[in-house]
Amino acid sequence: MPQNRQILLDNRPEGEAVASNFKLVSTDTPALKDGEVLVRHHYLSLDPYMRGRMNDSKSYAASQPLGEVMIGGTVGEVVESKNPKFAVGDQVVGMGGWQEYSVVDGNAPGMLRKVDTTHVPLSHYLGAVGMPGVTAWYGLVKIIAPKEGNTLVVSAATGAVGSAFAALAKARGCRVVGIAGGPEKCKYAVDELHFDACIDYRQHPDVKTMSKALKDACPNGIDGYFENVGGYILDSVLLRTNAFARIALCGMIAGYDGAPLPLQNPALILVNRLMIQGFIVSEHMEVWPEALKELGTLVGTGKLKPRETVAQGIESAPEAFLGLLKGKNFGKQLVKLS
């Protein structure tokens, strides 16, 4: 059995996460038992939610245990199997974590899923046609539930979730405005992701200037908002919402270091009769087949062209993850493992 390099959570962050919170180790891969498969990971997914799991605090999911392999989605191929459902060479997606190999119980529901790479590249099953894409689909379809002609806004617009959100919303006849960091990302959002407009938050670093930019980009107000960030951007959006606007609350990356994120004008929730709903996409597995079918079609037909930032080697995962939290990635952040 091969040697397996792994990244463990060695200690918990105090404030901002740092590279020394992680530890690289090598270990022997255990022999397979009946029903198990050995997966060699080709790509590892890095996602903002992982930062929250590093804390030892109350959240929607259990904290990442110290001394264990960091949680994370993976895609790869089966290299050994003692399960009739999986053959050597099968391309699969799962939650293998920050490591080069994983031993998986092939009979456990939802642990491992075979994928077709004929029209969709393997790496996209960690982004546009994976958890981030389904996250965008659920927030749009089940919470915002837009009508044709509505104006929708999404923060972190050029990331894996935001780019999928744009394609899904445009397919429903909506006007879509993104918020992203830097002129290059905003240009990509408009030129390649087909956003109607994109606001550079670095040019609008406070509520006053961001609210003005939103007013200019959304002259008819905001009917739906997909939130990934929180902080002053959420305050700015609330000032521009129409009556009965709907907000899908997926992430609050501005608060992942533990700082509180107070709202400046919570009365707007009442004034505009807003519906704000937080959600965790893994709690809605019943929608995944429908969502993945639409997302796969968008990618396969070229209507969604996801961009990826790829770090090389398992040892690069911590720094790539810290860069993700600071917005250094362009599109989906991955680590190539083989």
Rank of each mutant, 00 (worst) to 15 (best):
L32S: 00
R175N: 12
E68N: 09
K187Y: 07
E319M: 14
N228Q: 12
E16W: 11
A169S: 14
C186F: 12
L38A: 05
G106I: 08
P318H: 08
M210H: 06
R307Q: 15
K85E: 14
S81K: 06
D34M: 07
K305D: 11
I280S: 04
N83T: 01
N55F: 13
R5T: 14
Q3G: 10
I247G: 06
K293P: 00
S155D: 11
G110P: 02
A248N: 00
G300A: 09
I276L: 10
V190D: 05
M111E: 13
R246Y: 06
K332F: 08
P2A: 14
A254G: 04
G302L: 05
F279M: 03
G89K: 03
I269N: 05
N272Y: 02
M210D: 05
R12A: 00
I7C: 12
K85S: 08
V37Y: 04
S26F: 14
P318W: 11
L140R: 06
V79L: 01
V93W: 00
L46E: 04
S45G: 12
P266S: 09
E77D: 10
L274P: 01
G110E: 01
L268Q: 10
P132N: 13
G313L: 08
Y188F: 15
M131D: 03
I179K: 05
E80W: 01
R307A: 15
A243V: 13
I7P: 00
A320K: 06
T29N: 10
V39H: 00
N21E: 03
P318Q: 06
L214H: 05
E100K: 02
K85L: 15
K114F: 09
A145F: 02
I233N: 08
K187A: 15
Q3H: 15
L122C: 03
G130R: 09
V92N: 06
L214T: 02
W137P: 00
D223A: 07
N55D: 13
L46N: 01
L298N: 04
S338N: 14
N272H: 14
N4R: 12
H284Q: 12
K58V: 09
Q264A: 10
K326W: 08
P132R: 06
T158Y: 15
E192P: 00
E148V: 13
M252S: 12
Y225F: 15
F244I: 08
G224S: 13
L249Y: 05
D105K: 07
K328G: 05
R113G: 10
L9G: 05
M252K: 09
A317P: 00
P109I: 15
